[in-house]
Design a protein around this nucleic acid. Structure first.
Length: 561
RNA sequence: CGGAGUAUAGCGCAGUCUGGUAGCGCACCUGCUUUGGGAGCAGGCUGUCGUGGGUUCAAAUCCCUCUACUCCGACCA
């Protein structure tokens, strides 16, 4: 490609509407333009990057013998009714009708469509296991799109689905896919983690997420500093330890707020009141500095989803006590305690009277121990649940999620195959998503400097840019540049010749912003050598033009970093 | 969906409080000079001041309506 033919739409100005580094850089480097909230147009530079990411993913899918398909971005709504996700998905599913009044939706994911395909086409166990995948546009009508491509409404995702005769076969494919995802992320040169995760509306019984660590990320990961334990914040657990060492021995006493000091705060337990199914109330007890985890609550009390916390006002109306003085003793409500609360001795809680608290409360002595459930978010510095290391909490961007679905979809959609012993069995399924447009943004979050994007070699819009200097002065410079351009194309490099009649400074800042990894300068000054310059470390080396291909293909270039 | 903010040239912004000729920088066009870090000089083009209504002799500016976009939260993977 020649720069004179390439649509390069870079900008010096920092776009006012972009907050994230990746969003700013993608706009400034001319990769994307915004069309509407969470919807983008991809420009030539961006498309080249996207193509490289697709290539990388296809290579890994090929390697594990997955079959590429392409499903429509429009889906008949009947399939969603069949899988019972029609209501569950809510307004995120963008629905519309065709001229015959048949209802459709824009594809947010493809479990239904693929299950429908397979139940029609695959009748025998002899075809299994089978992996199908596609790379295509998805649409989710997000409540609040933000951060550029990181949470867009329209995005490009690779989604894969696997079909098996049983769980052990699924486990095998799941592990193969897990490894493939690791290889993909390694190629992106990003700091990432795979973590155990929550299945959400996709369903199933086991899942892992792949996250790129970034201080700007929306998600939080809980990681052990000394073991492999890594989990999404919403399901992370910590080692529950007995906390009776707080106090020697005391007995139940009611004290006034005036005597309430630091010492009692340490052992304070707080009470939250939630409204459950049929408006019944439930009291939850948590250690004072612990935060209630909605997801854990909802998982355990599925029928009370979504969690409804009573406000101070509600509590005054319903219970008639001030929120700060609620406690389990003498309370006429069912109680559930967090695991940590169940382990604490001589604790402090409200006395259900204004300005009064009980201290020295002990389970079984002072009141029976109610149901125990893990209800809280873990805190940084706690012990890892595998007893090895302490927990760190890091921000991240979720880029991939793999699920063991089991027979969730095949059962409800009646997708069955004939097994080897002659009986019909539902397909055992897995599904595997990786957000390409999100991974591009996250890769930029991880790979940039004050000049712009620093692309990993294989993902950059071009591997090499040839920059003739003062080419208007000497024909030799032009001739050599053209010669090298032809050679590099022949050697199958993704090369760009910057043949524009603009000043050098302009070219340099522009290619630094766009992030081309390798730059070659051809000038009168360095004759007969040419200058190789590296985007990442800004170092230069002077080489003979004839050695260029050898230099670029040899290990030299890697030692150079 | 709750809260906050913004909307003026292609982009970034000033002007709005206190109503009275539509401004600046970048970009763009022309010419000359320049050419190893987004050049300099001279000249030029660019606007339904988001939409609709109201007040006024007069509205970018004051009042009301709607819309879009951004941020925080909730939600979601």
């Amino acid at each position: 490609m020649r720069a004179s033919n390439l649509l390069i739409l870079t900008s010096k100005e920092i776009p006012s509407k972009a907050e994230f580094i990746s969003h700013k850089l993608m706009l400034r480097s001319g990769m994307i333009r915004s069309l509407a909230s969470g919807i983008y147009t991809w420009l030539p530079i961006g498309i080249r990057v996207l193509k490289n990411f697709k290539k990388l993913v296809r290579k890994e899918m090929d390697f594990i013998c997955a079959n590429e398909v392409l499903m429509s971005s429009i889906q008949p709504i009947e399939l969603w009714k069949e899988s019972n996700r029609y209501k569950q998905y809510g307004p995120e599913l963008l629905r519309f009708k065709d001229r015959k009044k048949r209802e459709f939706c824009l594809c947010p994911t493809n479990e239904e469509v693929i299950t429908d395909l397979i139940r029609r086409e695959i009748l025998s166990y002899k075809h299994l296991p089978l992996i199908l995948y596609q790379i295509t546009t998805k649409f989710r009508d997000e409540l609040r799109p933000r951060f550029g491509l990181i949470r867009a409404r329209e995005f490009i995702m690779k989604d894969a689905y696997s079909f098996h005769i049983n769980n052990s076969c699924l486990d095998n494919t799941y592990n193969i896919m897990y490894d493939a995802y690791n290889r993909i992320l390694n190629s992106c040169c990003v700091d990432y983690r795979s973590v155990i995760a929550e299945n959400g509306t996709i369903g199933g019984f086991c899942s892992h997420e792949f996250h790129i660590l970034a201080s700007s990320g929306e998600d939080k990961l809980v990681l052990s500093n000394n073991s492999k334990y890594a989990a999404n914040n919403v399901i992370a657990e910590a080692l529950s330890r007995n906390k009776k060492n707080y106090i020697t021995k005391s007995s139940l006493t009611i004290i006034d707020l005036k005597r309430f000091n630091k010492f009692y705060i340490k052992t304070k337990v707080k009470m939250l009141i939630v409204s459950c199914k049929r408006n019944k109330l439930l009291a939850l007890l948590l250690v004072n500095n612990h935060k209630l985890n909605n997801i854990k609550f909802e998982k355990h009390f599925e029928l009370s989803k979504p969690l409804k916390l009573l406000t101070n006002e509600d509590i005054l109306n319903v219970i008639g006590e001030h929120i700060n003085f609620l406690g389990p003793i003498g309370l006429n409500l069912p109680i559930v305690v967090d695991k940590c609360v169940s382990l604490i001795c001589d604790f402090t809680a409200g006395a259900n009277q204004n300005n009064k608290v009980y201290v020295g409360i002990n389970w079984n002595n002072d009141l029976p121990l109610p149901n125990i459930v893990d209800l809280r978010h873990v805190l940084a510095g706690e012990y890892s649940p595998d007893c090895v290391g302490k927990l760190l909490i890091k921000r991240s961007i979720e880029v991939g999620h793999i699920f063991k679905l089991g027979t969730k979809y095949s059962n409800v959609m009646n997708a069955k195959f004939m097994s080897s012993i002659g009986i019909n069995k539902p397909f055992v399924m897995g599904c595997y998503g990786i957000g390409l447009t999100r991974i591009i943004a996250a890769t930029i979050e991880n790979n940039n400097d004050k000049y712009g994007i620093v692309w990993p070699e294989k993902l950059a819009p071009f591997e090499i840019v040839l920059i003739p200097i003062n080419s208007h002065k000497t024909k030799e410079v032009i001739d050599l540049s053209e010669k090298l351009y032809t050679c590099l194309i022949k050697a199958q490099f993704d090369v760009l010749l910057d043949d524009r009649d603009i000043r050098l400074g302009h070219k340099l800042t522009e290619w630094e912003l766009i992030g081309i990894p390798h730059r070659i300068f051809i000038s009168e000054r360095n004759k007969p050598k040419i200058e190789y310059n590296n985007r990442k470390n800004k170092k230069s080396i002077f080489i003979n033009p004839d050695d260029l291909i050898h230099f670029l293909t040899s290990k030299n270039i890697f030692n150079f970093f």
